[in-house]
Nucleic acid binder design. Structure first.
Lengths: 196, 196
DNA sequence: CGAATGACAGATATTGAAATCTGTCATCGG
DNA sequence: CCGATGACAGATTTCAATATCTGTCATTCG
């Protein structure tokens, strides 16, 4: 079956995810990926120049899913302040569910993130853009005050201020009971800062 | 010389720091500490029940230094808003200087922190208390508005919101050029949120 | 012809035997 | 008597030999 399908980058990425999930980042090899696909490892190198490039592509795909999952919250028809809280809450809930539901997978993901800081950087910029749009809308609606410098800077500040609630580096803290209160307090602080 | 002085917990802690500095957290052994002090390793165990307890004590000492260094900023005679910015800036500068000046030592420190999360937790509570006092003073002075819930919660929110600028987990980002702007933006956000 | 293969060199990881370390405690010496 | 010692058992780490992996490329196969 599998042998009859053409070997695409997409199929390789799926197999790589599977292998990473099963063996973890330290033991997942290109040979393993080839084995899952029933091809020689040389064939994998036709689609990805190096193992690092393959991992980077997996990381990108993984992060892309977050962007997609959040888009509905960024484009919700609510007032900007509620939209911002909704978006931040969704981001936190998403990460928290992932971290809590499968800690090993989260650890794997964290290793990949550490290896591909430039990909992460670009991902963060996407997220900050989504925030910036909400803040800009909020100003136009009169819900938020004019930004101190510009929308991008303010959005980045909001992103940084909520860092503890979306950066996987803090995943270990997300299991504690008082994290909800801490999150609510930071959201409240942020809203106060932005409101007109 | 060394043999004539009595063996105290204090001297053992100094030797342990020395050994951690020199060999790093992975290779520093109790035997090394004893060698530096010119005693048998059994003597070290008279003062610290386990190697873990010894490392914990070093961590505590290390964190205590931050508290002491920040006290002047917490008790400065300025208005509360300036005092808060001064304190947060001092905290960031302190950590940043440490991380930038000796990255290896910082890495060592980070390992110790990871091993002793309860000590870190207590340390954070001390820092949050210092913030809480400033926020409380600010409210009394009329510089800051009444807290949403209570001083402790607000102070914790300020601490969490500035996490990216004091948590060693983010030390790698502190070398980038735009970190100053990001810091200024979060400070500005925080001040806006608190001001009356 | 173009995609897939597998042999290969150099780099990296695994393994198990040997060395070192942790923590205890009976004994020593001032 | 009381702090310091060093031998010891079990746990952990190191080291070097062995195996596996990464990335290339001449060759094969459809």
């Amino acid at each position: 079956m599998a042998a009859t399908e053409t070997l695409t980058a997409e199929r390789i990425l799926e197999a790589t995810e599977e292998v990473l999930r099963r063996y973890g980042p330290a033991k997942a090899t290109v040979v393993d990926v080839a084995r899952v696909l029933g091809v020689s490892h040389g064939s994998v190198y036709r689609h990805f120049r190096t193992k690092a490039a393959l991992r980077e592509a997996v990381t990108e795909r993984w992060l892309e899913r977050t962007i997609v999952a959040l888009r509905p919250y960024a484009e919700a028809p609510d007032a900007a302040d509620e939209r911002l809280t909704g978006w931040l809450t969704a981001l936190f809930a998403l990460k928290r569910r992932k971290a809590g539901g499968d800690p090993e997978l989260m650890a794997t993901f964290q290793v990949l993130i550490g290896e591909n800081s430039d990909v992460v950087h670009r991902h963060e910029e996407h997220l900050v853009e989504q925030i910036a749009r909400i803040v800009e809308d909020g100003h136009r609606e009169g819900v938020f005050a004019a930004p101190e410098r510009d929308y991008a800077t303010t959005a980045r500040a909001v992103f940084d201020a909520t860092d503890r609630f979306h950066d996987p580096a803090h995943a270990a803290d997300w299991a504690t009971t008082d994290i909800e209160d801490a999150f609510a307090a930071v959201i409240s602080l942020t809203q106060r800062a932005l409101r007109a």
